[in-house]
Design a protein around this nucleic acid. Structure first.
Lengths: 248, 248
DNA sequence: CAGGTCCACTGGTAGGATAAGTTACCTCAA
DNA sequence: TTGAGGTAACTTATCCTACCAGTGGACCTG
């Protein structure tokens, strides 16, 4: 198959470089960025491109810009939003940062039962209909990747049904974080995604407005899939640890 | 007291205008922005300023820019991050959007017990020491606003103690959302903030590593303060509803 | 040595020129 | 008639230069 080639603009390149230097702690909180003129000279790009990159860093709350003064690096742990998670999930060598991954799994684990419960309260029959339709599709799906996609759409529908905009926006950031790991997740969750009874049951409980039972069922399902991911992360951690030892 | 005067640059102004038009649905998802040249002419600013504003909109995932094509508005419910919550919390007249506020209160309610539990597991004595020091300060505090600030720092410390970067980043967005409502929250939570036993108890349970009990105590506390906020929101909703009826 | 002035930086804004990509439409041959 | 290809008129992307505006330190000066 063909993949759409991604063209990276100059200002994107500058943004990525600076963001990486910040999240990899090569530029620490409180330190000053080189001046725009110096940066543009060092990188061989126009000052314009540098300014646009810095505007994005500012929007991501990674730097603080002061007219007339130097631009300083902020503490991303204190200032940045969940949008930064995709950048924190991998280190410079492309290895998964296990701590960050566990954090994300945990947050998903905590939010999911509440999402299901709130969807049961606020979703109504319309949400339940869409959920049932998705479960029908899941029943017919054969390829694991299709199942994974449909399961994700199921959760998206639950989030919408909860009517909670804060869940919705947090979920968006989590989705962006999952994307680079999509194939890997499909393998990890292969067994859990086949628990169609759970999905069907959730749709039913949403239809009946049974919040507590929906939360309970969601918890069961999510705890299972969280365990699957965490077991993978344990193995991954051992493997990379051994790899480091072998190289040392 | 003096307040730092906030100077808004031209590109900030352009960004605010465009972001507001998007969140207020004057520019709907799928619609096209005017071209950069047209925008800069309409707003009476340089194309540079417009481009910098659009770069920030792009970083916030409110628009999609395509080289050679028109820039289109994205569906912020599907794409944006929790960074957008402060903009969603107020409508064009500066009135609180009660649905958004309830969403935020709910998310805080769901996350807080888990934060406390994880802090109990991962925080250790160092976290407990800092928590106890904060409770000491709270005991000595007299002004409600100081109590509020210290209580917030207490939760920040719990989040740090949980060691969960996803909690941390989500919490950052929530903090940015609270900020414009700080004085109002101080009034609403006046009674709850005086429950120093809860704070002291949480510090103790973190020290002893008792996750379940910490979650339970956190839930008790957060449910109480959530009720207080929701009661205010109910009254606020009635009031604004009456106000609308009177004007009609 | 406090207070003010100046200067050498910093980021902010403007406008123009050109490159590169998209889109709609028009032309022309099969 | 239809479809392939080219063209024209847009769009965003990039760069350049010039100048405005704010900051902070050096350096006078009373």
């Amino acid at each position: 198959m063909f993949k759409a080639i991604q063209k990276r603009s100059v200002s994107d390149e500058v943004f990525d470089q600076l963001r990486n230097r910040i999240v990899y702690q090569e530029l620490k909180a409180g330190e000053e960025l080189p001046s725009e003129r110096l940066l543009s000279e060092m990188l061989g790009v126009s000052r314009n491109a540098v300014r646009e990159a810095i505007k994005r860093l500012q929007q991501a709350r990674l730097v603080e810009v002061k007219h007339g003064g130097m631009t300083t690096v902020l503490d991303y742990r204190r200032e940045a939003s969940a949008d930064l998670l995709p950048s924190l999930l991998f280190d410079q060598d492309g290895q998964i940062q296990v701590d960050a991954a566990r954090s994300i799994v945990r947050m998903r684990q905590v939010l999911s039962p509440a999402i299901a419960a709130d969807a049961a309260v606020n979703g109504g029959a319309a949400t339940a209909d869409r959920l049932d339709a998705l479960v029908d599709d899941m029943t017919a799906a054969v390829a694991p990747v299709d199942l994974q996609r449909l399961a994700f759409e199921f959760w998206e529908e639950l989030v919408d049904g909860s009517g909670n905009i804060a869940y919705r926006l947090a979920f968006n950031s989590l989705r962006k974080t999952y994307e680079p790991l999509w194939e890997l997740l499909t393998q990890m969750l292969d067994r859990d995604l086949r628990k169609l009874d759970s999905f069907r049951g959730l749709a039913m409980l949403v239809r009946e407005g049974k919040a507590d039972e929906a939360a309970e069922l969601a918890r069961d399902y999510i705890d299972g899939s969280s365990n699957a991911i965490n077991q993978f992360l344990d193995l991954y951690e051992q493997h990379t640890q051994n790899h480091l030892n072998n190289n040392a």
